[in-house]
Design a protein around this nucleic acid. Structure first.
Lengths: 229, 229
DNA sequence: GGAACGTTTCGGTGCGCGCCGAAGCATCGA
DNA sequence: TCGATGCTTCGGCGCGCACCGAAACGTTCC
């Protein structure tokens, strides 16, 4: 393969991003959430047929992955490498402005006013918890805990082994429809939820699915997982 | 600036790389050397007029910088960020094959059979030395030594302070025509060259500009700078 | 079973851009 | 001063691709 063939391969990779509509879609997806094709069309300011064609190109390139749920097609960035690529290309244009502090305040409130999904945390709190567990490598890409994760659970007094023996998947990522990101479900999600209630870190709210993070709970979750940074 | 304007900016950045000829030129420049416009045209397999137009686009985008020397126009990648961008886009295609060991052997010989440029090291050895000083942060982007660099020179018994007081620029990067990369010139380049001769690490060769790295010199330069890795 | 909704396919249209050769400009050496 | 060399500019040509609406397909709900 000579220089020009290598150049053609590089050019093809860059040309996926070199269209305004596809680039706009990638920037929208940079928020880490999954969006439907119709939503992406509206946000990018193009027809749904145009969006469908562009999404086909983005999925083929490997930058974007799709998940089907009935008639809905959810799209998200494939992985951290894809995100890094889009971000580093963005930085060669202009750096995006820092987020306003009001936004951080709203996010903090969303974490505190958590929602449960059956027997595990959902909403902003559930998404943040999954992100924190991954960032601290307490769970890996597979279905189980890491060694560090097992020690961490033992320190919480969590009997993770019986939850792991259950027929139910232990570490399961579930797309959170309101946040458009994954939260932690499965046996581990349920066990952690139950344990946090026992420890008094979470308390049930006025309606069954509403839970709130208590004062001690906030301090502990901040110290152990950095949830409220 | 709305989502679509941000998308347009990202698309423009990517479209610079999305042409096969420009992408080929960027891959050629990834070797860290400076090439003339005519040479780049030949290697990319395009007419010189085509190359001129593409180089204009690459320089405008900030990915490539130019240096003029008489009728010659030398082009090189702008900085490490530009190289990282091109490399990460390449990695989303296929990884380049590792260099053959024969090449490493030839490079080693080039380092040993060094050449001097007036009063400082040139050729492969001079380029390698500059790279090693930068990698170990003994010199910074500015015109002087770092604190670590001053200690390093003191350990060599180098009186760098009198060389720094000279009217001559202390750390000067000079484009090495044979290697197409910068080597170290200026007061520091001369002082190091003189000191290496004093220490017996370099010895003059049969013609005045040829110098060779001695046995002890090779061991010391390997230990202190990793020149022969 | 039919209506509503989300998505995909396809043909038509228009535009941007890459290619080149010829001519011109700047630099260098004899 | 003139010829050679490196590079730039420009007009012409051709092609690839993004846009859209209409129609069709698949899924969900009543």
């Amino acid at each position: 393969m000579d220089a020009r063939e290598n150049g053609a391969a590089l050019a093809r990779a860059a040309s996926v991003i070199s269209d305004t509509s596809r680039a706009t879609i990638l920037l929208i997806l940079l928020d880490g959430r999954a969006w439907t094709a119709t939503e992406l069309a509206a946000q990018a300011g193009i027809a749904r047929s145009t969006a469908s064609e562009h999404l086909h190109v983005l999925v083929d390139s490997g930058l974007v992955v799709e998940r089907r749920a009935g008639r809905h097609r959810y799209l998200s960035l494939a992985d951290a490498r894809a995100a890094a690529l889009v971000e580093s290309l963005s930085l060669s244009t202009v750096a995006p402005p820092p987020k306003p502090s009001l936004r951080a305040i709203a996010a903090d409130r969303a974490l505190r006013e958590a929602r449960s999904c059956y027997d595990h945390l959902a909403g902003a709190a559930g998404v943040a918890m999954l992100g924190a567990l991954e960032a601290r490598e307490l769970i890996g890409p597979g279905p189980g805990l890491t060694s560090a994760g097992e020690r961490w659970c033992a320190e919480l007094g969590l009997d993770f082994e019986s939850a792991a023996r259950s027929r139910r998947p232990f570490v399961r990522r579930c797309l959170d429809w309101t946040e458009r990101r994954d939260h932690l479900a499965g046996g581990l999600g349920a066990a952690l939820f139950e344990r946090f209630l026992e420890l008094g870190w979470l308390a049930r709210g006025p309606v069954p699915r509403a839970v709130r993070v208590t004062g001690p709970g906030r301090a502990e979750l901040q110290a152990r997982l950095g949830l409220f940074e």
